[in-house]
């Protein structure tokens, strides 16, 4: 019996780019989604700004909004891109287009990287808008470069995209896909060091926190918040988040089976 093996996931920059353009066109046709992607994080950040505006800061420490707001600049893109990607990929699976794509010359990794590139670009726009409004309108005080904040936000968004692509493999319905958001996102949010500093958690919670990628994203942002120049620790944090993104993408590629029942 001779069965065609799944193709090695070879890469074609041309097909990846065509797929990224296609995904961006789909998003562009959905004006409300575009508006929400660009404006929603800024709006929510404004709510946090108003929440802490009149709460006096502890003398000698950064204001609470500076601390929380900066962290949220990394968390918003992660959450938004996770949700958008997991739904988009689930649609691809349920509408039959995924099966069709797998009969074309498009490689599995081309498809995943196409999604990554499209939503990565969307995340960059989102991060520029959010960081600009945060630092001008809300007076968010960042010690380091705001471009580093944008960079970390985009890497966080890429992590959200990769985990969203992976999570969609385990969802059969959109109801399930939406509920993966609290499953994947909330534990990382609780343990990332924003609510309670990681070194004050119980030992076993620290251990969990240290294997969750969002912890490193938040730590990277805190480094930018505390130092005028990029620190080695920040770059290590960024590398960990990027590595987790690649790992999730590789796992997502492994879940894309060409032959199914």
């Amino acid at each position: 019996m001779t069965l065609a093996r799944s193709a090695p996931t070879h890469l074609s920059p041309r097909l990846t780019a065509a797929t990224a353009r296609r995904v961006l066109r789909q998003v562009a046709h959905d004006h409300r989604t575009v508006a929400m992607m660009l404006v929603l994080p800024s709006g929510l950040l404004g709510l946090l700004y108003l929440l802490w505006k009149d709460v006096p800061a502890v003398p000698g420490q950064p204001g609470i909004f500076d601390h929380v707001g900066l962290t949220m600049l990394g968390i918003f893109p992660f959450v938004v891109m996770f949700l958008v990607t997991s739904i988009a990929m689930l649609r691809e699976r349920t509408s039959g287009t995924l099966e069709r794509l797998l009969t074309t010359p498009l490689g599995r990794l081309d498809l995943l990287l196409g999604y990554g590139a499209a939503f990565g670009l969307a995340a960059t726009l989102q991060a520029v808008v959010t960081v600009t409004i945060a630092t001008t309108v809300y007076g968010l005080d960042v010690t380091g470069s705001i471009w580093l904040v944008v960079l970390i936000a985009v890497v966080d968004a890429a992590l959200g995209v990769a985990l969203g692509l992976l999570a969609s493999a385990f969802a059969r319905t959109e109801f399930q896909a939406v509920q993966f958001m609290p499953v994947i996102v909330l534990p990382q949010f609780f343990l990332c060091g924003l609510l309670v500093p990681v070194d004050q958690m119980a030992g076993w919670l620290q251990a969990i926190s240290h294997v969750l990628p969002l912890t490193y994203a938040v730590d990277a942002l805190q480094e930018v918040g505390a130092h005028t120049t990029a620190t080695g620790r920040m770059w290590i944090d960024v590398a960990v988040v990027a590595g987790a993104t690649l790992l999730a993408l590789a796992l997502a590629a492994a879940t894309l089976r060409r032959r199914t029942d």
Partner: peptide, 22 residues
Amino acid sequence: GSPPLRARVGYVTQSPSVYADL
């Protein structure tokens, strides 16, 4: 299903598999 065939075989599924939002 082998890779060289994928540019030479066209497949139209029973329910239309195109992107509804394009």
